[in-house]
Amino acid sequence: MASTPLSDDSRLPSLSRPQLLLTAYTVLTVIALVYAASTSSAAFGVYNSQWDGAGELRDIAGEAGANVTVGTNVSQYPTTGADGTVAVVLSPAESYSSSEQARVAEFVQNGGTLIVAEDYRPHGNTLLAAVGADARFDGRAVYDNRNYYRNSSFPEATPAGDYPETAGVDTVVLNYGTTVSAGDATTLVNTSKYAYLDTNGNAELDNEEQLASRPVVTSESVGDGRVIAVGDPSIFVNAMLERGDNRRFVRNLLADHDAALLDYSHAGSVPPVAAAILAVQRSDALLLFCGVVLVGTLLVFDRRLDERLRDRLREYNSHDTDPQLSPDGVEQYLRARHPDWETAQIERVTEAVIKQRAERQRND
């Protein structure tokens, strides 16, 4: 018996050139919008993968064995069991309120390690004072006309002794950094004796500016915790991690901690997509809501898919196909008519067609 001819009317229609261009433009626009909403161009930003961002800081903390959290609220500082957590603050753009300062101070008092990296903004010193640290950032740019990476504004500093933070570190390279007035804190890294503080901002050594070795990184105990002051937040950015032994130094600072909190609560805005993800991670209620929405969407999609298959089945039953067509013939017919269908879908429809055909024959 002759079989039903295979139909080719199910092929996808070809798109015209304007339609192709519109489709490509739409896809590129969506990709650009998603990328823009999930990245940042802010200096020291953890979602900034450019040279001045700190996107690699998360990777370094993870490599050091810490569970990394990007903090957007000071409430994320643990106040109990803080001895296994290190928090990193990079040149905050805004001052911490009195209640926020108290939260960070409680974190340190209960055993947390706080790293504050600052150069010229005043908020780093305010935070150091609030948590009870003795160290302070000078705020003037430090230059070195003899020991530098590219020019005198990139002075090379060296460890002041054998400390865990400086293990395997020979040189720390600064980028327009400042020095730290140590007070009673321990100096971890010093400039060379040829460094000077540029008091008048002309980037030159003048008569009133003295050559001397000065601290650029200090460490001190505060309560049960520790505070580390770094006179240059640029040490943590992507490009500077590759200078000298900066990467090893940063990794040492984060090592031996179970958790690392990258505090961006006062460092400008976080990209919308990243902010939404972080909000969901912090809130059990939001996480449950998103789960319910996802499950509901899948159920609706599954129901519509079933309805679509039933509609297609009725369509096939209405065709004048050969009632004696074998299952292989039905499957061949479906593959020719719907080349975009997956094998599992074709098998389900074939089985349903054969089953309904048998039921009709019994009824007849």
Results as ranks from 00 to 15, higher is better:
I115F: 04
T72K: 08
R362W: 09
K193H: 14
T350P: 12
S181Y: 07
T72C: 03
I31T: 14
T4L: 00
Q50N: 14
S49P: 08
V173C: 00
G183K: 08
L334W: 07
E209R: 09
V173G: 00
A167C: 07
A279S: 15
V295D: 07
Y77G: 01
N238H: 05
L305C: 07
Q109R: 15
P159V: 04
I115C: 04
Y120N: 12
A260G: 03
D284T: 14
Q324C: 07
G139Q: 02
P327V: 06
V116H: 03
Q356C: 05
P327R: 12
G124K: 10
H338F: 12
M1Y: 13
L205V: 02
S181H: 09
Y149F: 09
A260D: 05
E94W: 06
P92S: 04
G62A: 15
G161C: 05
S97L: 11
T80D: 14
V300A: 14
A64Q: 11
A255H: 03
H338K: 10
G62M: 12
R136L: 10
Q281P: 06
A267C: 05
R247L: 02
R251Q: 12
G81S: 04
A129Y: 13
D328I: 08
E100P: 03
V230L: 03
A275E: 12
L22A: 15
D263T: 10
Y316A: 14
A93E: 10
L127H: 07
R335E: 15
A267M: 08
E220Q: 12
D224P: 01
L128K: 10
R357W: 11
D52V: 11
L6C: 00
L241A: 01
A61R: 09
P339F: 08
F236Q: 09
D83Q: 13
A66C: 08
N317M: 15
A275F: 04
V68H: 10
V330I: 13
Y316K: 13
S14P: 12
S41N: 11
S49V: 05
Y333P: 00
L294E: 02
T321A: 14
L114C: 13
V270F: 00
S41D: 12
S326V: 09
V250K: 05
P155S: 03
M240A: 04
L205I: 02
L174T: 01
L114G: 11
A275T: 05
A36Y: 13
D311I: 07
L6F: 01
G291E: 07
V89P: 02
S219C: 04
E63L: 15
A195N: 09
V280P: 00
R312L: 14
E342N: 15
A229E: 08
T187K: 02
D198C: 01
G81A: 06
N363L: 12
S49H: 10
A182I: 06
D364M: 07
G168Y: 01
R314K: 14
R136V: 06
T171H: 00
S10T: 11
G168W: 00
N238C: 07
L241Q: 04
